[in-house]
Amino acid sequence: MYQPMLARSADPFTNPDWIFEVKWDGTRAISYITQKVMFINRRGVDITYRYPELQIKDNVTAPCVLDGEIVVLVRGTPSFADLQRREHIDDPFKIRILSRELPAVYIVFDILERDTIDLTGTPLLERKNILQQTVSESERLLICPYVQEKGGEYFTAATESGFEGIMGKKKDSLYYPGKRSGYWLKIKKTTTADCVIGGFIRGEGVRKSTFGALLLGVGCPLQYVGKVGSGFTEDDLIHIRDLLTQIETDRNPFSTPVPVDDVHFVNPVYVCEVKYQQVTHDNRLRAPVFLRMRYDKSPAECLQW
């Protein structure tokens, strides 16, 4: 089993030693394609059953292990909201219906193994060539294209087209499973952070039946970094309330003081992504806005910004 290689954050740049590709907003998944196909997410969980439409066995000329992102495309760009509707449904019937209503596409950008030969020690551009020779595109599978050198321009063009950002990858870099290295960089439109939900406070007015804000933390032990009270859709509010009431606890999961009254603490198991303006000097998020739940991430991954 391979752990996906991770990226650091960076600003747009131009450099002839690098290639750039669109950053796909979906669920990262490594696929193992032999007689059958298996998709494993970044938490090591087999999610194949969730995407019965991703029949990509015939898209490859040899058994292989691919790295890519499962997305739901709407008007040509990934819709994370629609992907999420796929992500937390277990009922086999609903999975079948949604596989037709909101079919997913697997965007492939790397190959880690071909014919049982480990390719993680092969430089990136060579892997890209092997990927081209091994995989063919279809309605359910796309090979992610890349451009040379011009990261700045590509970033502008990609974000104008509705993508969340781009990835920069060093041409001669090897594949480091599970490592967050400077060889892969994510260049995004907005600064976002993945935070662990450690509690919530009651809402008022129209929000009194759901919640007012979520208490966020990062690190292990969990440090309190602020609360987020905006950015939720009506569905988010109800859905998150339902999740959190199941895991309410008396135990304060934060190791640092929480300067909020009437807190309902929860077991720190769910991760959400927020955008924010900056991190203040006392390590709090300034003006965070809720973006979405990240079921594909574990609390242990929320160690750094």
Binding site: R100, L142, V147, E153, Y154, S161
Partner: peptide, 28 residues
């Protein structure tokens, strides 16, 4: 008939990606 149109999504994405690449060349 909710299935309609969805089949063209991947094509749309390919078009957008191709246009992106072109726009880069045009800018230089």
């Amino acid at each position: 008939a909710i299935v309609a149109e969805k089949v063209t999504e991947t094509e749309k994405t390919k078009d957008i990606l191709a246009a992106l690449e072109k726009s880069i060349e045009a800018r230089y």
